[in-house]
Amino acid sequence: MNSNIPAFWRAGFRPFFLSGAFYALLVLCLWILSLTGYLEYETYVAPPLIHGHEMLYGFGVAAIAGFILTAMPNWTNTPPLSGLPLAGLYAFWIAGRLSLWAGTSIPFVVLATVDMLFLPTLAIMTARTLYKAGNKKNLMLPGIFLLLGTFNLLFYLSEMSVIELSSRTILEAAISVLILLITIIGGRIVPAFTRNALHQQGITIEISAPTKLSIACIIGTFVMVLGDVFISPDYPNSFAVFCLLLAMAHFIRLIFWKGWLTLNDPLLWSMHLGYLWIPIGLLLKSYGLYEYGYFWEGALHALTTGAIATMVLVVMIRAGLGHSGSPLKSSFLLTCSLIAITLAALSRVVQSALEGPLSVPVLHSSGLLWTLAFGLYIIHFLPIMFKPRLDGKPG
Rank of each mutant, 00 (worst) to 15 (best):
R253G: 12
L254I: 06
G298E: 05
F256K: 02
P361F: 11
A353V: 08
K285Q: 13
G281W: 08
W257L: 03
A345E: 10
L354P: 02
A353W: 11
G325K: 07
L321D: 06
T304S: 15
S286R: 03
G274F: 05
A340C: 10
L268R: 14
T310C: 11
C336V: 14
I255G: 02
L289Q: 01
P266V: 00
A340P: 14
A319F: 07
G288Q: 05
L321Q: 13
L343Y: 11
G274D: 07
L267W: 05
T304F: 13
L338K: 00
D265N: 15
L282F: 07
W296K: 04
V315F: 01
G281A: 00
I308R: 04
P357F: 08
A307G: 13
E297D: 15
P279M: 06
S286M: 03
S330A: 15
L321N: 05
L276F: 15
W260E: 04
L354Y: 14
R253T: 01
L303V: 08
H323Q: 03
L263V: 13
L273N: 04
R318H: 01
G325E: 11
V314S: 02
F332M: 08
V315Q: 09
V314Y: 06
S330G: 15
A353T: 14
V349C: 06
S352Y: 10
S347D: 14
S324N: 09
T342Y: 14
I317W: 11
L282T: 00
S324F: 01
K329L: 13
S359D: 13
V360T: 11
G281L: 02
S331A: 12
V350P: 08
S352I: 07
K258Y: 00
G288Y: 07
S331Q: 02
H250K: 01
T310K: 02
M311G: 03
G320I: 09
E355L: 09
G322K: 14
L358A: 15
L334R: 03
A319D: 06
E291S: 14
P266M: 01
L282K: 02
L338I: 04
L261M: 12
S337A: 14
L268N: 05
H250P: 00
S326D: 14
E355N: 11
G293A: 01
W257Y: 13
L334V: 10
L261W: 10
A344F: 14
I341M: 06
W269C: 04
I317N: 03
L282Q: 00
L284M: 01
T262K: 12
L333W: 15
E291Y: 11
P266F: 01
